[in-house]
């Protein structure tokens, strides 16, 4: 197994190059991510994402991405989009899966298919204020990976473990983060 024939579509050289560049100019590693969320009607909002900052400069996605956020009909809403908590699952699955691909590339493991089934348990007593003992957020999150790759089970488990270790969203979800909300 050599890295030259493995192609998961991840430019590991560029990622390692960034790590080298950060050693010389640590300030360029400081990034800021942004989203602008506008209320539409009811529980429906639209979120736009286009700019961010990093590498010491203002940055922009190749286009503006727009996301509808809403709640399903079962919540007496209009279901224009997935719920905020489902975006969290999307973010976690997306982050971990990107990590699996990147780590596999670096370890010379050719992936054929990767699927993460992400689920989270939540008790609505929390957000409805019906039981002060119940938290608003998830009581637990599960991610179940189905990976088909040129590697044995231990190597695949190591890929998935390493991806968690290096995942931003996994860290955000497993550790407390200071959140400051203000009104301008």
């Amino acid at each position: 197994m050599t890295t030259s024939v493995v192609d998961n579509g991840v430019n590991v050289a560029a990622l390692l190059g960034a790590r080298e560049a950060f050693a010389d100019a640590p300030e360029i590693a400081r990034f800021q991510w942004r989203s602008s969320v506008s209320w539409v009607h009811g529980t429906h909002s639209t979120a736009e994402v286009d700019t961010f900052a990093g590498f010491g400069d203002a940055q922009r996605h190749s286009r503006t991405f727009t996301f509808d956020v809403d709640h399903p009909l079962q919540f007496a809403a209009e279901d224009h989009g997935i719920t905020p908590v489902e975006y969290v699952l999307v973010a976690l699955g997306g982050c971990l899966t990107a990590g699996v691909a990147a780590v596999a590339q670096q370890r010379g493991i050719q992936l054929r298919s990767v699927r993460a089934e992400v689920s989270a348990e939540m008790d609505l007593h929390g957000i409805l204020g019906a039981d002060p003992e119940v938290r608003n957020g998830f009581s637990g999150v599960r991610v179940d990976y189905h990976v088909d790759a040129d590697a044995d089970r231990a190597d695949i488990e190591a890929l998935v473990a390493q991806s968690q270790k290096r995942s931003a969203v996994y860290d955000i979800m497993t550790n407390p983060t200071a959140v400051t909300v203000s009104v301008s």
Binding site: A154, E157, A158, A161, Q162, Q164, K165, Y170, D171, M173, T174, N175, P176
Partner: peptide, 30 residues
Amino acid sequence: GRLAGARDDTVQFSGSLANVCALADLKLGR
């Protein structure tokens, strides 16, 4: 899990215990 922070009189632990154990188990196996 890892000590993640303290707020008032509560300490908070990371939810990553299962993964750090998996990493250590896999590493021991290797």
